[in-house]
Simulated assay, not measured.
Amino acid sequence: MKIYWRKFDDEYVPKFVEKRHNKNMADDVDVGSFITKTTTLYERIVRLTKVCRVVKGGRKYKYLALVVVGNMCGRIGFGIAKANEAQDAVIKSSRCAQSHMLNVPLGKNKRLIYNVDGKHNSTKVLMWNSRDGVGIKASSAIRSILDGLGIKNASAKIIGSRNPHNVIRATFNALEKLCIRFRLWKYHC
């Protein structure tokens, strides 16, 4: 996906151009969609699995989708859903992600404000800023979240289980801590 950052009303705003995978998505975004007030959301399928249930007549198969949705300007959400078809599972989970989005405060040039860590079950995630030009150094699950937020330079480390469900929940736990810490800082200043 090519994205270009252009200045619009003293703020860098993204616009999507084309789809390309396995790159730092926040590097290139375009402004036109924000001028017309139609926001195109970044959507990434983190995991799509086929699950089986054994019943009296045999096996029944369903698909489970884990999807991350963001607007590349500080809003991010994730959704998990099951359906009989893979496409339906992805649509359901993206709808769920859009309805449960989190506003994350970002610093200047779309950076994390603080170094944060989050935990879920046996997974611990540590995130911190990197210098300009480094890009995102993280696993694919964390990268999809940082790309959806619009962060260009960051690093992350996973300690413990690398199950994508746990990693995503631990990352969101860290981002919620970041929101709380920012609100407390804003309140006391």
Rank of each mutant, 00 (worst) to 15 (best):
L106H: 00
G148E: 00
R20C: 10
H120F: 15
A97P: 03
A26R: 03
I91Y: 06
N22E: 08
A86H: 08
K82T: 12
R44F: 13
G70F: 05
K157E: 11
R162P: 02
L146Q: 00
A97K: 00
S122K: 13
A86Y: 08
R95T: 06
C73K: 14
V68Y: 01
Q87R: 14
Q98C: 07
K60Q: 15
D147M: 06
T39F: 12
K19M: 14
M127E: 05
M101G: 03
A141L: 13
L184Y: 09
Q87K: 15
C52D: 10
T171V: 06
K19I: 14
A81T: 03
L66W: 08
V67T: 14
A26K: 02
R143S: 03
G160N: 10
Y12K: 07
V46P: 10
E176R: 13
I159M: 13
G133W: 04
Q98A: 03
I3Y: 07
G135W: 02
D30H: 11
I158W: 08
V54W: 09
M25H: 14
C96L: 13
F78N: 01
H188G: 02
N109A: 11
A154W: 00
G58I: 12
D88T: 06
P105C: 01
V31C: 10
L149Q: 05
R53A: 13
C52L: 14
E176I: 15
A97V: 06
G118P: 10
A83T: 00
P14H: 01
R143C: 02
L184D: 11
A81V: 01
K157M: 14
H21K: 15
Y114I: 11
R53W: 14
K23F: 10
G107W: 03
V54Y: 10
S130H: 09
A97C: 04
I91T: 07
V67K: 07
N153H: 07
F172L: 07
Y187T: 04
I113D: 02
N22W: 00
V68P: 01
S130I: 04
G133C: 13
Y12F: 12
K60G: 09
N121S: 15
K110H: 15
